[in-house]
Computed example of a mutant assay.
Amino acid sequence: MSQQPSTAYKVLTQDQMDALEADGTFAGAPVDLADGYIHLSTAEQLTETVDKHFAGQSDLHVVAVDLDALGDAVRWEESRGGQLFPHIYAALPLSAVVAYSPLERDAGGQVELPVAG
């Protein structure tokens, strides 16, 4: 099995971002709560996820999550097109967030990743 990345990404609305900062934890978006886990994407999957699930929305934020900090709560499971996606079977603590920024795209239309610092 190939080595999975240690960082994955979650797209949050402004209200969800505010709640994460205020509460120090994020229980999940409605789709996460319905499915029983928090959906994340790798860097390579992020733009497709945004295009598919957040089209036309503004005031979005990208949160970089340290998967190693979440330990056994992270499971890699097949989803879209048979790709493995990281899912968190727990609330997302702010302590596992290593960077976040408003969602922006580069000149090629790819979602830019937040940079810690």
Rank of each mutant, 00 (worst) to 15 (best):
D18F: 02
T13M: 08
A91D: 13
L94K: 15
E44T: 11
P93Q: 03
I38M: 06
Q57G: 02
D15W: 09
F26A: 10
G81Q: 15
F26G: 15
S79R: 09
A73D: 14
V65I: 12
L67P: 04
G109Q: 04
D68E: 10
V65N: 04
F85I: 01
R80Y: 14
D15P: 05
E77P: 04
D15H: 14
P93Y: 01
L103G: 07
P30Y: 11
S101I: 00
V74R: 02
V97M: 01
P86K: 02
S101P: 00
Y9G: 11
D23G: 01
Y9W: 12
L46F: 08
Q45I: 13
Q45W: 12
A43M: 10
G117P: 07
Q83M: 09
E112Y: 00
E21P: 00
P93E: 07
P30M: 10
E48G: 12
A34Q: 14
L67H: 05
R105K: 15
Q3C: 03
Q16K: 05
Y37E: 02
A90W: 07
K52G: 11
A116E: 13
T7A: 01
P30W: 15
F26R: 11
D32A: 14
A64L: 09
K10S: 05
V111Y: 15
Y9F: 12
S95Q: 07
H87M: 10
W76S: 04
L103W: 13
P30R: 13
G28A: 10
D106N: 15
H39V: 02
L113M: 14
F54M: 06
L46Y: 13
A27K: 14
G36N: 05
R75S: 11
V31D: 09
H53C: 07
E48K: 14
Q83R: 15
S95D: 12
L46T: 12
G28H: 08
L103I: 05
G56S: 11
T42H: 09
Q16T: 06
D35G: 11
A116D: 10
V111F: 15
Q83W: 00
E21D: 02
A69V: 05
L46V: 11
Q57C: 07
S95N: 08
M17V: 03
A69E: 07
L46A: 06
G108A: 12
I88S: 02
Q57I: 03
T47H: 08
A73H: 09
D72I: 08
T42C: 07
L40Q: 07
A96L: 04
A91F: 00
E21H: 07
Q4P: 09
A27H: 06
K10E: 02
A91K: 03
Q3F: 02
P102N: 05
I38G: 03
D59Q: 15
A29C: 07
S101N: 01
D59A: 13
D66R: 02
V11Y: 08
G108I: 00
E21L: 12
G71W: 03
L33N: 12
T49H: 10
Q16D: 08
M1A: 09
G109Y: 12
V74Q: 01
E78W: 01
V63E: 01
E112P: 01
L103V: 08
A43S: 11
V98G: 08
